[in-house]
Write a protein that binds this DNA or RNA. Structure first.
Lengths: 145, 145
DNA sequence: GTGATTGCAAACCTTTTGCACGCCA
DNA sequence: TGGCGTGCAAAAGGTTTGCAATCAC
């Protein structure tokens, strides 16, 4: 199952690259695989550090540029931050965020009601909404007094 | 009316400073006044450029540090961004954001329904929610094809 | 073969830090 | 007066850019 699912995703990646006329380079594959293993919202540097383990010659630029490219074609999302380094989200399905104002952590959560939020009419007239996200700011379990 | 409102806000600023044991320096007042005039989400540099007009000797650091201090005491909000320089929001009342993925603009909007979003029980158990914001990503009027 | 992609290095932009001086309370 | 706040300058951190060599198609 796991193995199959992984193969499927690799195949999907090939397809996506072809759809967008991107060449399938070993670097891109390695970065993509690393993203699949991420359960957080890694920075470009975090991805770089991990990919470097199995691919010592890769440069930080390549990682950064590849992530930006991935963001353009919808393979990753760029996550909203409040300063600091960009963060990338391999989970492009609709979900929402908890943001701890103390430690800066960003935690995913699912909520059907939030997914189905109605876009106000006056907003929809002047703005074409592509995705919706609820961001709850506050204190996480570890930072709560 | 305007004048009164402005005086009120200045008075409020004095009170806030005293509450937090902050000294009321001319720089802080100038930065605060500049914030009141902002209708967008200025960067530290934008504030700096404007304050410099009436206060040529001020340094960028002072502006930046002051804004961070203001954020700590709740005079401004740090706005969620997707990369680039920090943005500060002088509007600390509850509101929501449209984010144009094309030009990067962030537009405020009000919505009572969004203000009153119910926090899911399983979230509330592990996270103390302080504020809620809906971020709608998409294309603004100018960028829409 | 050809154009896209990579690696490297430098440049750039923003934010942070240390320190001496000056000013507000 | 004492200590907070400011200005300056340098450092640090992250991102972007230009270019030559390389690789996928």
């Amino acid at each position: 199952m796991q193995k199959n699912s992984h193969t499927d995703k690799t195949q999907a990646f090939f397809n996506i690259c072809h759809q967008h006329q991107l060449k399938v380079t070993p670097q891109r594959v390695a970065i993509y695989r690393q993203l699949l293993n991420s359960d957080t919202h890694p920075t470009a540097d975090a991805i770089y550090q991990n990919v470097k383990q199995e691919y010592p010659n890769i440069s930080y630029d390549t990682v950064n540029r590849t992530l930006l490219t991935f963001a353009e074609i919808g393979v990753v999302d760029v996550v909203e931050i409040f300063g600091g380094a960009k963060r990338f989200d391999p989970n492009v399905t609709n979900h929402h965020h908890l943001h701890c104002t103390q430690c800066g952590k960003i935690i995913d959560f699912q909520n059907r009601t939030y997914d189905n939020l109605h876009v106000p009419e006056d907003v929809g007239k002047n703005f074409q909404v592509i995705s919706k996200r609820v961001v709850l700011k506050g204190l996480c379990k570890d930072c709560r007094p």
